[in-house]
Amino acid sequence: MKVQEIVNELNLEVITCNQLLDREVSDGCVGDLLSVVMGKATKDCVWVTVQSHINIIAVGMLVEVSCIIVSEGFSIDNDAISKAQEEDVILLSSKESNYKIAAKLSALDI
């Protein structure tokens, strides 16, 4: 499945890298503890988190996630947005909870 389809199905706001939405998503990961995410997240997964600071971009890059969904409508730090643009990390935003987002992703067979 492509990021674009997830954006459409979950009605997500695209914060960065609109031009990269044809990237493939192969798995999902929900987590707010960065080390746990680094231990569990797989390459090309969609990562759902309430964290919204610059270090999620570093983790996303290192683990090579397909995209990051910041949940609960948390506002994303400006330095995180700039870094994501610089490093081609797709940042998406949703007003829904981690649980709701995960349930919807699961319904999409992710």
Binding site: L33, L34, V36, N55, I56
Partner: peptide, 14 residues
């Protein structure tokens, strides 16, 4: 900020 999960050194070892 989501650090301090106590997984850092175990992750390195793994």
């Amino acid at each position: 900020m989501g650090f301090g999960a106590g997984m850092g050194l175990p992750n390195i070892k793994r």
